[in-house]
Amino acid sequence: MIDPADLGRRLYDLRAGRGLALTALAKAAGVSVSMLSAIERGEKTPTVVVLSRIADGLGLSLSRLLADLETDRVIVRRAAEQDHVAEPGGWHRTVLTPVVPGVNFEWIRTTLPPRCDAGTFPAYAPGSHEFVAVESGTLHLGVGAAEYVLEAGDSLYFPADVTHSYANRGDEPCGYHVAALVMRPRGARA
Rank of each mutant, 00 (worst) to 15 (best):
A160F: 08
A26W: 05
V95K: 02
L139V: 09
R15D: 00
C174T: 14
L60V: 04
S128F: 06
G187K: 12
T94L: 02
P185N: 11
A38L: 12
Y166C: 02
C116E: 08
E87G: 00
F131L: 14
V74M: 12
D161A: 05
S52K: 03
A190F: 08
V95N: 01
V132S: 03
D171F: 05
P88Q: 11
A38K: 11
T71Y: 01
E40A: 04
V74T: 11
T111Q: 10
A79T: 08
S32G: 14
P185V: 10
C116F: 04
L69Q: 03
A167V: 04
P113M: 09
G170M: 06
V31P: 03
M35F: 07
A24C: 02
A188G: 13
A67R: 15
G175N: 10
I108A: 04
T110S: 10
G42F: 01
A123Y: 12
L25K: 04
H84W: 04
Y166R: 07
R78I: 06
D6S: 14
R15N: 11
D56V: 03
L150Q: 04
H92T: 03
L96G: 00
E87V: 10
Y12P: 01
A38G: 06
R115V: 05
D3Y: 07
R41G: 03
R15S: 05
F158Q: 13
V149F: 05
R115L: 13
S63R: 12
L60I: 03
L141C: 07
